[in-house]
Lab assay of single mutants.
Amino acid sequence: QGDIVVALYPYDGIHPDDLSFKKGEKMKVLEEHGEWWKAKSLLTKKEGFIPSNYVAKLN
């Protein structure tokens, strides 16, 4: 089961498979690959890669 993270900063995706998000948006982490994680937005239901240093895990 994936962790839920919250965006600390907004992110505008650079690549087509990036997931753009707004500050405060919550996402479910699907896979962790070093600095880039695959996640699904709980708001938009879209999936893509996010920079892990832009988010914090919720406990």
Rank of each mutant, 00 (worst) to 15 (best):
Q1T: 14
Q1W: 14
Q1P: 13
D3C: 15
D3N: 13
I4T: 07
V5A: 07
V6G: 02
A7L: 01
A7Y: 01
A7P: 01
L8R: 06
L8W: 04
L8F: 04
L8Q: 05
Y9W: 12
Y9L: 09
P10H: 13
P10Y: 08
P10G: 12
Y11I: 02
Y11C: 05
D12T: 15
D12N: 13
D12P: 10
G13N: 04
G13S: 11
I14H: 10
I14P: 07
H15R: 13
P16A: 10
P16M: 08
P16N: 08
D17K: 11
D17H: 12
D17N: 13
D18L: 08
D18G: 11
F21K: 01
F21V: 05
K22S: 10
K23M: 09
K23H: 06
K23V: 11
K23I: 09
G24H: 06
G24P: 00
E25T: 03
E25Y: 02
E25S: 03
K26A: 08
K26V: 14
K26Y: 15
K26S: 07
M27Y: 02
K28Q: 14
K28F: 13
V29E: 00
L30F: 07
L30D: 03
L30H: 03
L30T: 06
E32D: 14
E32C: 14
G34F: 04
G34S: 06
G34C: 08
E35N: 13
E35I: 13
E35G: 10
E35V: 13
E35S: 13
W36G: 03
W36S: 06
W36D: 02
W36E: 04
W36N: 06
W37S: 07
W37P: 05
K38W: 15
A39S: 03
S41L: 04
S41Q: 03
S41E: 02
S41K: 05
S41N: 05
L42E: 05
L42Y: 06
L43E: 10
L43G: 06
T44I: 02
K45E: 14
K45L: 15
K45S: 13
K46R: 12
E47R: 07
E47I: 14
E47A: 08
G48R: 00
G48D: 00
F49D: 04
I50C: 03
I50Q: 00
I50L: 05
I50S: 01
S52I: 09
S52F: 09
S52D: 04
N53Q: 11
N53P: 05
V55N: 01
V55K: 02
A56F: 11
A56H: 10
A56G: 07
K57R: 14
K57E: 06
K57W: 13
K57Y: 14
L58I: 13
L58K: 05
L58V: 13
L58T: 09
N59Q: 11
N59K: 11
